[in-house]
Design a protein around this nucleic acid. Structure first.
Lengths: 139, 139
DNA sequence: AATGTAAATTGAAATGATTACAAAAATAAG
DNA sequence: CTTATTTTTGTAATCATTTCAATTTACATT
């Protein structure tokens, strides 16, 4: 996606499309790698002069609050970020630590009987070993 | 559940039923409150003389590795523990921070097309506002 | 009951992720 | 161009968790 489109998208979501915000969203959208803050930092530090890790935290927190990014809590010691806010599930491989998306339709997710509750977010994730690492183990 | 039963259960799961382990498992099973380590500590420190927080971490890690306890990663900054290892979902209230269970059958959970993957764990959780807090907000 | 050995527990220090905060820089408005 | 507001930065603080060596406990064998 073009920086132009990213800017327009942020603006539409009530976020001023400042340089670093656009770059970070652009990173999330193009890589789709469910990165941690550290991954974003080490990838963007070369590209953005004088980028601070605090800024990444600030920007991501803003994104999450504004609803343009999901914070994924799959492992206790790391938060991963995903700019795809549509309904989908995640799989995390115990071996290579990679996180991949899988499509599910909202109607497929069970709707528990929670009388009077307001449900804002659905999270569905699986853990195991991805096909690539399964082969490595068997070999 | 009686301490006797807890001990037998731990033994069957390959865990030596030492005093503190039995007390911690007993706590998890009877309270069913999805506690954090801190919650367990502040509740049991009165009951168990000279209990250390490190011990709670040790015991819980053992429980999780042995498969008798689930580690729930719903919020990025806290891990909660659940001795109910059967298939079920969790709801976390944004207001009161409480976590409650809801029943779902394994067959209800969508089975994504992940050719060649080995899937070990399914996690399904919802976030929102519980009925009690919904009323508080409206009032 | 006493002894020895292995396992568990402890507390202090280390680690690692995240947040708080005040100063500096960038942005927008007049 | 000047000023006011917002954003970014870097350091220090915080908080959960792990590491590790020393102490204690559990348990099998005398």
């Amino acid at each position: 996606m073009e920086q132009q489109q990213i800017s327009a998208y942020l603006l539409k979501s009530g976020i001023r499309p400042l340089q670093k915000r656009v770059k970070i969203m652009s990173y999330l959208v193009s890589k789709r790698n469910h990165p941690t803050v550290d991954m974003i930092y080490s990838d963007l530090i070369h590209e953005i002069n004088g980028l601070s890790k605090t800024t990444i935290y600030n920007v991501l927190n803003l994104f999450v609050q504004s609803g343009v990014t999901l914070a994924l809590n799959i492992e206790g010691n790391e938060v991963r970020y995903d700019a795809d806010t549509s309904t989908h599930g995640h799989f995390k491989c115990k071996i290579c630590s990679g996180v991949i998306d899988f499509r599910i339709r909202k109607e497929e997710l069970p709707n528990p009987m929670l009388e009077g509750f307001r449900i804002d977010e659905h999270h569905y994730y699986l853990k195991g070993v991805c096909s690539f690492c399964v082969n490595k183990i068997e070999a």
